[in-house]
Write a protein that binds this DNA or RNA. Structure first.
Lengths: 231, 231
DNA sequence: CAAATAGTGTCTTTAAGACACTATGCC
DNA sequence: GGCATAGTGTCTTAAAGACACTATTTG
C-alpha cells in the first residue's frame, strides 16, 4: 500500500549514497569524500546526499548528480545495492539510505578528482587504516562482495575500462575485482559468447606484441552467463 | 554523505511494500490487498505501509510487520528487490518506496488469508484483468523476473514449501516459478551438491510410490551454484 | 636473439540436459 | 497386472580450467 491517509508519521531522513568503483594500477579503488561537517567531521564517507524532489526525477538522478559533483562525469554503470535503515547508523537519529554501486573508467573520472582535496580514490586495503564515517565501511564491503559476484557471471567489469581497451586490461580489472588470477582464454571465450564487444581496427603497444583494441557495441544490454567463473 | 546540516529539504514520503510469492496448485501467486482509501480505492495493491521509527528497528521489520498483519506469519524468505522513486508513481506527490520480495509456504499463510476479504492470492495471469494500484503491476513483474533468476542458480524456491516436502513438490514449485519443465534428476543433483537438506525418516503418499520427505537443515545459508539452469 | 605480452589449440573437468531404466505403492 | 509417481544410471553437451604452443613487437 504505497501511501495512506495517515501520513502524519515521523518520517525518517532519506538520503542516497554511492559506492563508485574503478581499477587503478591493478587495484580496486573506491571514491570517498572528506566530511566537512559534524558528525564524523574530517572522516571519509561515500559521496551522496539528499534527494531533491525538484530536480531529481528519481533516486538514480540523485546518485548521478552527486557523483558528477565529485568526478565531473557520469559513471558508466550504476545499479542499486541496498537500502540501509535504522537508528544506530547515524547519531542524529533514524536514517534511511539508498545505496548504489557504480563503475567508471579511471582515466575519465580522475582528472577532476585530482584537482580537489576533499575527494580521492581509496584502495580496499586502505579502508582499514582510514577513518570511515557512519557504517560506510560495512557498506563498501557489501558492495565489493556484490561486484565480485557480478564479475563471476557478467561482463559488467568492462565499465571500469575506458572506451577502447585490450583483453589484457580487461584481465587486470577482473583480477583486481576477484582477487585471483583469471585465464586469458576464459575471458576471450566470454567476449566471444557475449557478443557485445567489437574489435576496433587499431592496435596498441603493451610491452610485447601489439594488442587488439575492443569497444562495447552500441545499444547492447548487460549479458549474464549461465555459468560462473569459479570462486 | 549520509545526512547533512541542511535537512530542511522537502523530504519525500517513504514507504515499504512487499511482493509475497507462493505456489498453490502448481501456479505462482502473489499476495495482494484491497485498498480501502483513495487513491485507487478498491484496487488491489501490494501489502505495505509507512516505516514506524518507534517500532521498526529497520525497514526489514516494516516489511515483516505489514506481512504479518495480512498473513499472521513471517515469510520464510525476505530480500530487498528495489527502491522505486519519482513524481509519477503516486498522484499525491513524490514518493519513495522500498520494495521487498518474499516467499512463504502456502499452507501456513493461507489459513489466515482465507478469513479476510481484503487480502488474497492472485495468480500472475490474473494481474492482467484485475485493477492494480499505482505502479504495482510493474513492480510485481520485476519481482517475478528476479525470483526466476534466483531460481536458476540457488535453492531459495524451497522457501515456497512447507517444512517437510518431497522432491516432486520442489519440482512443481520450480516449474511454476520458471514456467518451464525441469528434470527431476537435476533437482536431485542440486539437493545433493548444496548439502542443505536432510532426508526425514518418513515417507508420504503421492499417487505412486511413496516419496521421501526432506527438510532444511538448521542454520544453513543460502547456497548459490556455479552454473545456472538453462533459460 | 631474449623478454614480454598477445593470442590459439586442445585436453580435462564439472555440472546440466535427455532419457531409458528400475522401484514401489495403490487400484 | 497396470498405472502413477519415485528414484537411478549413464550418455551427451556446454563451458570453464589448465597449460603448452605459436605470433609479434621492442630492445
Amino acid at each position: 500500500m504505497s501511501g495512506n491517509k495517515d501520513s502524519d508519521f515521523k518520517n525518517p531522513l532519506f538520503t542516497v549514497d554511492s559506492v563508485l568503483f574503478t581499477v587503478i594500477d591493478k587495484e580496486l579503488k573506491v571514491l570517498l569524500v572528506k566530511r566537512a561537517s559534524e558528525p564524523y567531521i574530517g572522516c571519509w564517507a561515500l559521496p551522496g546526499g539528499f534527494l531533491d524532489i525538484d530536480i531529481d526525477h528519481s533516486a538514480d538522478m540523485t546518485a548521478l548528480r552527486k557523483l558528477k559533483e565529485k568526478t565531473n562525469v557520469a559513471p558508466q554503470y550504476l545499479e542499486q545495492l541496498h537500502t540501509y535503515s535504522g537508528l544506530a547508523r547515524d547519531p542524529r537519529g533514524y536514517s534511511v539510505t539508498l545505496v548504489y554501486y557504480a563503475l567508471t573508467s579511471a582515466v575519465e573520472a580522475s582528472t577532476h578528482i585530482e584537482t580537489v582535496d576533499d575527494a580521492k580514490w581509496v584502495s580496499i586495503e586502505e579502508l582499514d587504516i582510514l577513518p570511515i564515517a557512519f557504517d560506510h565501511k560495512h557498506i563498501i564491503e557489501h558492495a565489493q562482495q556484490r561486484l565480485k559476484q557480478k564479475a563471476l557471471y557478467s561482463m559488467v567489469p568492462i565499465y571500469c575500462l575506458p572506451e577502447l581497451f585490450t583483453i589484457g586490461q580487461f584481465k587486470s580489472v577482473l583480477e583486481a575485482i576477484l582477487g585471483k588470477p583469471v585465464q586469458r582464454k576464459t575471458i576471450i571465450r566470454r567476449i566471444d559468447a557475449a557478443d557485445i564487444l567489437e574489435k576496433v581496427d587499431e592496435k596498441i603497444k603493451s610491452g610485447g606484441r601489439l594488442a587488439h583494441l575492443y569497444k562495447v557495441k552500441p545499444n547492447v544490454d548487460i549479458v549474464n552467463f549461465e555459468r560462473n567463473l569459479s570462486y
